[in-house]
């Protein structure tokens, strides 16, 4: 089970507590999103969470700090930072990679950085040197020829998008996902994880029939956090939600 969190949402301490409780509940990989204004791949739920954090001046540096605190709490959980090239480029790239390594994160995923982008190449090469994974995405619109090229660049695991569109906007079609996972697996031995459109523990359970090695849950967790920002039991409750997902995936 991979869970996506917006860094420092609603604030650093609570965000860290939420992630800790999620790890306790059995999350295998934490995807920590660093907020940015444009967020061109995000639907309204995650976009609103980003805006909340930007208003409080949360930066990629804060996200790195959060990742460090998560690592201090747990040595085994996977930590992947997720976001957009804008922040990494300005960090700049070289420092980002060394900071990522120094907090003992496992890698990052950059939504708007296809391998055609030279700056992606720079990032990927530096990350490879530090044994960090730049997670690549495959979309339903990715053609076979391109998938073949991408498979040479896969590192860590593969993020398979269940539908073409922005996060939280549609539901996944099981048959399509099954075919896609199968197609990707002909090109790689790495784990293939399925994301987008997985809203309930029931959705997650269905996904296990597709042959994927893991599921990514994002918008529905972020939405719950957004609706319960001031609840003192928020971290514990998120942990309980995660538990219901994890149980279905067993």
């Amino acid at each position: 089970m991979i869970a996506y969190f917006v860094a420092c949402y609603p604030n650093f301490e609570k965000s860290l507590e939420i992630i800790k409780k999620s790890i306790d509940a059995g999350v295998n990989i934490c995807e920590i999103g660093f907020p940015t204004q444009e967020a061109s791949g995000e639907g309204i739920i995650i976009k609103n969470a980003h805006d909340h954090c930007l208003q409080r001046n949360v930066t990629l540096k804060d996200t790195i700090k959060l990742a460090k605190a998560v690592r201090n709490y747990n040595n085994d959980v996977g930590i992947i930072l997720m976001g957009y090239m804008s922040n990494i480029f300005k960090y700049p790239i070289k420092n980002f990679v060394s900071d990522l390594a120094s907090v003992d994160a496992d890698g990052c995923l950059v939504v708007d950085a296809p391998h055609e982008l030279r700056e992606e190449n720079e990032l990927r090469n530096l990350m490879n040197k530090k044994n960090l994974s730049l997670i690549k995405l495959v979309a339903p619109t990715t053609k076979e020829e391109r998938l073949k090229k991408l498979s040479n660049l896969f590192s860590g695991w593969v993020y398979s998008l269940n539908f073409s569109g922005i996060s939280g906007s549609k539901s996944a079609n099981l048959e399509d996902v099954k075919n896609m996972i199968k197609k990707i697996k002909t090109y790689t031995d790495l784990p293939v994880c399925s994301g987008f459109g997985i809203k309930t523990p029931g959705d997650a359970k269905k996904m296990t029939q597709t042959g994927c090695d893991g599921v990514i849950v994002g918008s529905s967790i972020v939405e719950y956090i957004g609706k319960n920002l001031n609840d003192t039991k928020l971290p514990k409750n998120v942990g309980n939600i995660i538990k219901t997902f994890v149980e279905e995936l067993r």
């Binding site: 995405l137 495959v138 391109r146």
Partner: peptide, 10 residues
């Protein structure tokens, strides 16, 4: 360059 999501690359 191209700084777009994978689903728009095709």
């Amino acid at each position: 360059g191209i700084a777009a999501g994978e689903n728009l690359m095709n």
